[in-house]
């Protein structure tokens, strides 16, 4: 899984002017065509790392590689990188600059120098995929937070990047909208897009990600498949993370000898089907 990374950081260090060391020799690789989640407390360096992935920030030490090649920082190379790696910022208000949704979404593809018809096609496609077509003529400042978030994602989708990076996509969203956004990611991922997101929600990372990195104080302190990462109780404690509730419940069932399967459930349905015993609801329905 990791022999074919699309993005790599090699010993990347970065410090902000106020003296904060945001990244300390971070080395990691993002598997191609997968969904990778970044977990870790606030100030762990996730956002800073993401800004390195499309060249907004330039590492003070080490280097970033995209698709097997070192990222270069001249104008042309940067545009090329940003075409392929799109970032959805955490606060949509920092991203939405245009007065209408249609114009907002068209900004990226127009910058790529595409012909108008192609831009129209992509803008319509991106708005359809994010369910924002009906907001087309609305000014961005009259949108609700969830709508803004979806428009911010459409912004990036319209550029058709190969990697979609999303900084806390579900922060401040209600459960239903958060689910919708994660379903969108699954859809894009199914179409071959590599998805990277950061989150504080262990349950989300556990059920939705293919691979997980855990960061703290500007360094990667753990990584692996979700099942591996959440098995390492020492690591979780160090990062201040809890175990996903699905795993907690399953382990408790297993301890009491009530679990029939021998693998961690990824969804509520999987958990239910691993509980031993007769299906009472059926027998009760037909007495």
């Amino acid at each position: 899984m990791k022999d074919d990374p699309i993005l790599e950081a090699r010993e990347v260090s970065f410090g902000y002017p106020d003296g904060t060391e945001a990244l300390r020799k971070v080395s990691l690789s993002i598997p191609r065509g997968k969904k990778t989640a970044f977990l870790g407390p606030n100030g762990a360096g996730k956002t800073t790392l993401f800004l390195h992935f499309n060249g907004i920030l330039r590492p003070a030490g080490g280097k970033v590689c995209f698709d097997g090649r070192d990222v270069r920082y001249d104008h042309r190379s940067l545009l090329d990188l940003r075409k392929n790696v799109g970032i959805v910022f955490q606060d949509p208000d920092t991203q939405l600059f245009s007065a209408s949704v249609l114009q907002e979404v068209s900004f990226g593809p127009l910058n790529l120098g595409l012909p108008r018809e192609e831009v129209w096609k992509r803008v319509n496609g991106a708005m359809a995929a994010t369910g924002t077509v009906h907001l087309k003529d609305r000014p961005t400042h009259f949108l609700s937070y969830g709508q803004k978030k979806r428009v911010a994602i459409a912004d990036i989708l319209a550029m058709r990047p190969r990697v979609l990076i999303c900084d806390e996509p579900t922060a401040w969203l209600d459960a239903r909208h958060a689910d919708q956004i994660m379903d969108l990611f699954d859809k894009f991922n199914g179409e071959g897009m590599t998805v990277v997101f950061s989150t504080h929600d262990v349950n989300l990372a556990y059920s939705r990600a293919d691979y997980i990195y855990i960061m703290k104080n500007g360094a990667v302190i753990g990584e692996g498949l979700p099942e591996q990462v959440f098995k390492d109780l020492g690591l979780l404690q160090q990062a201040g993370l809890e175990r996903p509730w699905l795993v907690d419940v399953y382990e408790e069932l297993k301890r009491k000898g009530l679990a029939v399967k021998n693998s961690w459930p990824k969804t509520k349905e999987e958990l239910f089907s691993s509980i031993a015993g007769k299906d009472f609801s059926l027998s009760r329905a037909r007495p």
Binding site: R82, I87, T94, F97, L102, E104, N111, I156
Partner: peptide, 22 residues
């Protein structure tokens, strides 16, 4: 905020012109 906006615009290949569809 203005600095963040600039970063966000750059992330979408901004190079001096704000072109949008009409």
């Amino acid at each position: 905020h203005s600095q963040m906006i600039h970063a966000a615009l750059s992330a979408r290949c901004y190079s001096g012109d704000l072109n949008v569809l009409e």
